[in-house]
């Protein structure tokens, strides 16, 4: 992170599955490079031997018993679906 960061906007937008116009790409890349420049301050922080914090208040062993409870009826599960057919969600053809 010591080097000036570069954000490959095409690659990242591809990963994030968001379509962007050329204008948007240019604008976001410019704005975000400024933000990333600011983030550079972290590079100088000594975090040798410091445990990462993934949870603000970590607790352990939160589990539930294996008991099944009926969930959503089919029509409730699909009530917001943009397109459905015979109880299944329709999507454009997926080529594997």
């Amino acid at each position: 992170m010591s080097e000036e960061p570069t954000l490959d906007i095409d690659y990242v937008a591809q990963l994030a599955r968001i379509s962007l116009t050329e204008e948007e790409k240019a604008r976001y890349a410019k704005q975000l490079s400024k933000v990333l420049g600011y983030f550079q301050e972290l590079a100088a922080v000594d975090t040798e031997g410091v445990e990462p914090t993934a949870h603000a208040n970590p607790i352990f062993d939160v589990m539930r018993e294996d008991v099944a409870v009926d969930g959503l009826p089919q029509e409730r599960a699909l009530m917001n679906a943009p397109k459905q057919l015979d109880g299944e969600v329709v999507v454009p053809k997926v080529i594997e």
Partner: peptide, 12 residues
Amino acid sequence: AYYSKAQKVRTL
């Protein structure tokens, strides 16, 4: 450099 580092600084 970003995510893991930030998690450590969060500890500080």
